[in-house]
């Protein structure tokens, strides 16, 4: 496997921003639970996961900033991790639609985390063998963290699905809300091609894990359902991302270059 074939600088930048945006937006959504978790231990758990994800995003942004600085056709004001996170507009964000969806109730938050962490788990498993040393290093580090996220979220899916009538009802409602956004994870954008990731294998592994956890959660859902929503990876986002960024970027937009 040789990654250096056909990978332009622009493609690497877009790919890194996509990985970073996924982690940052998911991490930011999780941080919205901070202080509002159903019980203290779970408030701490979801805040920990937020911290891991924002840390991964920082690693990807820091790495992306290097080729951006050297490139002539990239905006010159976007050369630090902070400017990449705080000064890009909705259309420039490359995260998948799943991560920008609102948290909803605990069941929706959990199911979103489970879908996303399972995806990250199989993606990073492949990326830790990538020919690009820095990408490989970030993925290997993140994989250990994501392993804990998969465990935690799948245990909660099982607890809710195999819990009370009410918890099961909510989990099924979350499934109806979120399933349509899972297909996009496995539809490669142009910048994801030739990055030595096998999307077919990744989708197979993801489906297998999701089905086995659903079975344990005693929920019976039509996972082969075809209708999917996509566009996030290329900047076509739902209204939710604009609202999220308005809040997340407010300080830097209102007080440029402020620090604390």
């Amino acid at each position: 496997m040789n990654k250096s074939i056909n990978i332009s600088t622009d493609q690497l930048i877009n790919y890194l921003l996509h990985l970073a945006d996924n982690s940052l937006i998911m991490g930011h959504r999780n941080s919205e639970w901070c202080g509002h978790g159903p019980i203290l231990e779970q408030d701490i758990a979801i805040s920990n996961i937020a911290l891991d994800l924002i840390g991964q995003a920082r690693n990807f942004y820091q790495y992306a900033a290097i080729p951006i600085k050297q490139s002539t056709n990239q905006p010159i004001n976007l050369t630090t991790e902070d400017s990449l996170a705080y000064l890009r507009d909705t259309r420039e964000y490359k995260n998948c639609l799943l991560v920008e969806q609102p948290n909803g109730d605990w069941a929706q938050t959990i199911l979103k985390q489970f879908f996303f962490s399972t995806y990250q788990y199989y993606l990073y498993q492949q990326l830790q063998n990538n020919a690009d040393d820095q990408l490989k290093a970030i993925a290997a580090k993140a994989l250990k963290e994501v392993t804990y996220h998969v465990r935690w979220s799948s245990e909660w899916v099982i607890r809710l699905g195999d819990g009370t009538d009410e918890s099961k009802k909510r989990l099924l409602r979350a499934f109806d809300e979120l399933w349509m956004f899972t297909g996009e994870l496995f539809e490669p954008a142009s910048y994801e091609l030739n990055m030595s990731t096998d999307f077919i294998l990744m989708k197979e592994e993801w489906n297998k894990k999701v089905c086995s956890v659903f079975e344990e959660a005693t929920i019976d859902v039509p996972v082969e359902k075809k209708w999917h929503q996509s566009g996030g990876k290329t900047g076509n986002h739902s209204e939710h991302l604009g609202l999220l960024l308005a809040e997340m970027q407010f300080m830097q937009r209102a007080y440029p270059n402020s620090e604390w």
């Binding site: 779970q42 701490i44 920990n48 392993t147 465990r151 799948s154 099982i158």
Partner: peptide
Amino acid sequence: CAPDSFQKEEAIQCPQCNSYNSRLVSQF
């Protein structure tokens, strides 16, 4: 360090009384 749910926990020794009879409250 594996993603499987509800694994049998490792016995972690209590740093106060050295007992291995402990339980996981939260992974985080």
